[in-house]
Amino acid sequence: MSLVTILAVYPFALLYDGLIAEHFHSWPLHWRTANFPIFLAPLLTYAVMPWLSRVLRRTRRRGPGRSAAPTGLTAGPHDAPTQARRQAFGYHR
């Protein structure tokens, strides 16, 4: 997950420093420093990180000998109690 965070933060930090930060040179240091997390933290938290996590989910979960399907979604003979609960509560796939 830290790699995902780095991939998400770096381009936006670069854009911020290159396009936006130059407009705040006359501001005091504490206000200039506060701009970065005030603008980028919500953007990264609610838009970029969820999207990037979904995009990279398959590559993060896949290991040697593992399929891309998340575990627990396939029903085998050992899942009879789970299948019974699903039928009892009206869950249909």
Rank of each mutant, 00 (worst) to 15 (best):
I6G: 07
L44R: 03
W27M: 09
R86H: 07
I20C: 11
G90M: 06
G63Q: 14
F39N: 09
G72H: 09
T74C: 08
S67G: 10
L29P: 08
G72M: 07
I38L: 15
F12K: 04
G76S: 14
P11T: 01
R54F: 13
A68H: 08
A47I: 07
A75I: 12
Y46H: 12
L43A: 05
R85F: 10
W51Q: 11
V48H: 00
I20W: 02
T71P: 12
M49K: 08
T33R: 13
A80I: 03
L40H: 03
G63L: 12
L73C: 10
V4A: 14
G90L: 04
T5N: 03
F89N: 10
A8M: 04
T71L: 14
T33H: 07
R57Q: 12
W27A: 10
F36L: 15
R62L: 13
P37H: 01
F89M: 13
P77D: 08
R57T: 11
Q87Y: 04
A34C: 02
R66E: 10
A13F: 03
L40A: 05
T33P: 00
N35C: 14
R61F: 08
T82K: 06
R85V: 06
T45W: 00
L29T: 12
H23T: 04
R57S: 13
H78K: 08
H23V: 06
L56P: 00
A84F: 02
G90V: 03
A41W: 05
T45M: 06
S2Q: 09
Q83N: 06
V55D: 04
R62Q: 15
E22M: 09
H25W: 09
R57A: 13
A88L: 11
G76V: 11
H30W: 15
A47G: 09
I38N: 04
W51M: 15
A13K: 01
R57K: 13
A75H: 11
A13C: 04
M1C: 05
T82G: 06
R61L: 15
V9A: 10
Y46W: 13
L73V: 14
P50N: 06
R58P: 03
Y10H: 09
S26M: 05
H23C: 04
I6P: 00
W51I: 15
R60V: 09
L14I: 11
L15E: 06
Y91F: 14
P81V: 05
A13H: 03
W51T: 15
P50R: 00
R86L: 14
H78M: 05
